[in-house]
Structure formats: C-alpha cells, structure tokens
C-alpha cells in the first residue's frame, strides 16, 4: 500500500525531518508509527497524502507515485485516504454533520445519503446526538472523534491518524482503537502515529520506530 524509497525531507538547510527513509507497508496492515517528538512522524504522514512533497526520494501509495500526481488529481488521492489530523482541522463554521460529510458533499452525493452515512459513522464514535453542534461547542475529545468520523466516512483504502488518542481518556482511546481495528478488518490499511506506549503494547501490531528522521526499527 505504501512504499518509500530513500525519502529525504528537509525544511531549510539544517532542518532535516526525514533522512533516507525506505520502508514498505502492505495492503491491509495495521501499523504504528512511533518515536519521540520531532522524529518525523507527522512529516511522514504528510508526504503520504501529499500535503508535502519530499526533497528527495520516491513514495508510492496504492501503486501511484505521489510526487508525480498532477495537481488537479490530488483531491482524488485524498478522497481515498482518511486522515485524522493532530489538530483535528475541523471547519469551525460548519456543523458536525457538515464536517463529517464534507468529502461526500464534494463528491456530489445526495443529502439524504450523506445524512445516513454521517449518522452511522458518528454513532460508531458515539457522537450521533451532536450532529448539529459546531466544533467549538465540543470538548477536545469530542472534536477528535469528529475528526475520526470524517476520516472514516468515505471508507478509505488507507487511514492515517496522527496522535488520534491524544485527547482521549484510556477507555475511549481503546474504543477508538477497536474501531480502527474493525475498519482494518474490512480491508483498510491503517497507519497510526502515536507515542502512547501502552496503546502500542496492548494492540501488539507492527511498529515502525522513527528517530531523528531515520527508521530505527521496522
């Protein structure tokens, strides 16, 4: 699903975020990406859905060279990748429903169908009663779950999550992980960046450890 070949990412001359990263994640895998803060976890995720382009090296996602995708096609790549951002990135002036169903709307899906699917996915994260609230009316944990619901609504082939349990208490964190596992069982490849060791231990999945931009363990 994801293959990287000697990927480098520099922000300016002295700021090297990724240093010769070569790795492979198979279709249907569930992988944790871990490492200390500043190790390059977020950068790695950004490269996959092409929020950033690597300074050097190649990245294949679902068989496509991400750097070579023409700009006009990038939205279509992103529609197939669910992303849970560390800072949620919810649209503050849209309701929970509108946020979650945004990608469906962009895809031209009818409102009734959008409602149905949004309700379903929000129910799975336990927020179906807050469809009409605005993000700023929700707690951090709730916003995080909205972000998760948005990432999952289009049944992506790949789910990227950046510290998706950072704002959740352990019980809820575990619930979210169960949800991810469920999604994974249905065929979605899942890549979760986290430094929550407990969570990693509990799930016993493959772990990629990044340290100072290098793959220390895979």
């Amino acid at each position: 699903m994801i293959q990287t070949f000697h990927v480098y990412m520099n922000y300016g001359r002295d700021n090297i975020a990724l240093n010769d990263v070569t790795l492979e994640i198979d279709r249907g895998e569930f992988v944790f990406l871990t490492g200390p803060s500043g190790a390059g976890k977020t950068t790695f995720l950004k490269l996959i859905f092409r929020e950033e382009v690597p300074s050097q090296g190649q990245i294949l996602v679902n068989g496509r060279n991400v750097s070579a995708i023409p700009e006009a096609k990038i939205p279509f790549l992103r529609r197939n990748i669910g992303v849970v951002f560390q800072d949620f990135k919810l649209l503050p002036r849209k309701t929970v429903f509108e946020n979650v169903a945004f990608v469906l709307r962009v895809m031209g899906i009818a409102k009734l169908e959008r409602k149905r699917r949004a309700f379903q996915i929000l129910k799975q994260v336990g927020l179906h009663h807050k469809m009409n609230s605005y993000p700023l009316q929700l707690s951090g944990g709730e916003q995080q779950r909205v972000a998760i619901a948005r990432a999952l609504i289009n049944e992506p082939v790949l789910l990227l999550a950046d510290e998706p349990t950072g704002n959740l208490d352990p019980e809820l964190a575990f619930e979210i992980m169960s949800l991810f596992q469920e999604i994974n069982a249905r065929g979605t490849t899942v890549l979760v960046a986290t430094h929550d060791r407990d969570l990693i231990m509990r799930l016993g999945k493959r772990v990629i450890l990044l340290e100072k931009g290098r793959v220390a363990e895979s």
Binding site: A72, P75, R78, K89, L91, V103, V106
Partner: peptide, 15 residues
C-alpha cells in the same frame, strides 16, 4: 485556514 482544510480532505480547486 478553512480553504486549506477543504483541500486536505479532498475538495477540488473548482469546488
């Protein structure tokens, strides 16, 4: 910021 988010979740330029 909002526009950036829309792009990240797959809105086309036309949209």
């Amino acid at each position: 910021e909002e526009i950036g988010i829309m792009r990240l979740v797959g809105a086309t330029h036309a949209y």
